[in-house]
Design a protein around this nucleic acid. Structure first.
Ligand code: MN
Ligand code: MN
Ligand code: MN
Ligand code: MN
Lengths: 220, 220
DNA sequence: TAATTTTGTTAGATGAATCTAATTTTGTAG
DNA sequence: CTACAAAATTAGATTCATCTAACAAAATTA
């Protein structure tokens, strides 16, 4: 069995790999708020457990075993988020922190039951895919709103950031997944966008916001 | 904030105090499966935090602060058990181990929501009272079935042991809380009882079982 | 009361997960 | 190609929670 600490390293390494391809010690260190020497020694420990390939000064990579275990933790995290929203009535902005804790619960039947009650969902409340019981996951390739051009229409499908602050901001603008947003103009200097969606005729979003919104580009 | 480890000591000390009055190092040690020197040093630490009164060779006692914190953990444990049974459909024999983990979750709103969904229950699935938000709890004084005499009728209200094995045994005999059981005879040698309840005309229970069953004595 | 058993404490060690400081390796910019 | 900066590693310390071994106090038994 892996400790809670090890689980957090595995999960974060898995997610970073899918975000950015290569993951270096410093990346994990920043994401986990843990100093680099600590990360190095944990990588050696995980390598001993055959969960990570580790070679000094080389990028960090999960083994197949590591990917599987990480995927299962992410599964538990995302099922929990879905459960908190759909069954318990939490807002999507409230669930990430709670799931961060519950994801370490050791009880297959607890998550089985959630899955069943939810009707075997494929996505979490933030649009991220829920890995299957073997930790396997298909990552859809969405476009970032920030990469759209004037005139494009994007159907929002996922957020890149599940923090309470960001999601509260989206709530305040009535931005939710499923909405079709149209790019009305882009400020060349800093990428600020003016968009329209639903009843909103023109809403201004900073680049910081638009690069955290993913969706499918609609033709027309 | 207290660590998960500290929380388990507090909770166990609280429960043992109410079970047996005085609690000594050896009692906590046995209940937690932790060696006595470890318990002693943890008691010193909790005393520094004003959660426990500690004097060498004296019984262990929680301070008011300690009782409150312990009560709140027990509240989370018992609300969780109730939630697992009533909302998620687990059997009463399956929930203790899961609650043992979830009780350490740091999220007041998570337990608020459970409480709300359950309609502010006063008892957990094993008949134990759920402490209020300040950790206060009223322990009802029930009679043990093992203390009953031939001819007595006891309305089952709580079990003393929430382990999966014991509750599965009760399930196998269709023994549940709320049932009225009548003592038909008692073997003087070892206290084995023959009882009747529901459709069962005569069921034989060992002392080990009857001393774990609590209820209210019915007159008549 | 004296001997023995039980309970509790002290002392010192260990492993997990973290840190800081110092050093080394790698990458980059002139 | 050298110098500097960034990234990574090594070495050594710290804190938490645990253990074993040795000793001491309290309780029980004879
Ligand atoms: Mn999340
Ligand atoms: Mn976590
Ligand atoms: Mn329980
Ligand atoms: Mn616990």
């Amino acid at each position: 069995m892996n400790s809670l600490t090890e689980e957090n390293y595995l999960k974060t390494l898995f997610i970073l790999s899918n975000e950015t391809g290569e993951v270096n010690v410093i990346d994990l260190s920043k994401r986990l708020n843990i100093k680099m020497p600590t990360v190095t020694s944990m990588m050696k420990k995980l390598a001993d457990k055959k969960l990570v390939y580790y070679e000094s000064y080389k990028p960090l990579r999960l083994t197949e075993k590591g990917k599987k275990e990480a995927g299962i933790i992410i599964r538990k995290h995302r099922l929990t988020e879905m459960f908190l929203v759909k069954v318990m009535g939490f807002g999507w902005e409230e669930v990430h922190e709670i799931a961060e804790q519950l994801e370490h619960t050791r009880s297959p039947s607890f998550f089985e039951k959630m899955d069943e009650m939810l009707g075997y969902p494929k996505l979490d409340p933030h649009g991220s895919p829920i890995p299957d019981k073997n930790g396997k996951v298909e990552w859809k390739k969405y476009s970032k709103l920030s990469d759209c051009k004037t005139g494009d229409t994007l159907k929002l499908a996922a957020v890149i950031d599940s923090s309470e602050e960001f999601l509260k901001f989206l709530n305040s603008r009535e931005l939710k997944l499923g909405l079709k947003v149209k790019v009305k103009s882009i400020e060349p200097f800093d990428g600020t966008m003016v968009i329209s969606y639903g009843k909103k005729q023109s809403e201004t979003l900073s680049h910081t916001v638009t690069e955290r919104l993913l969706g499918e580009l609609m033709d027309i």
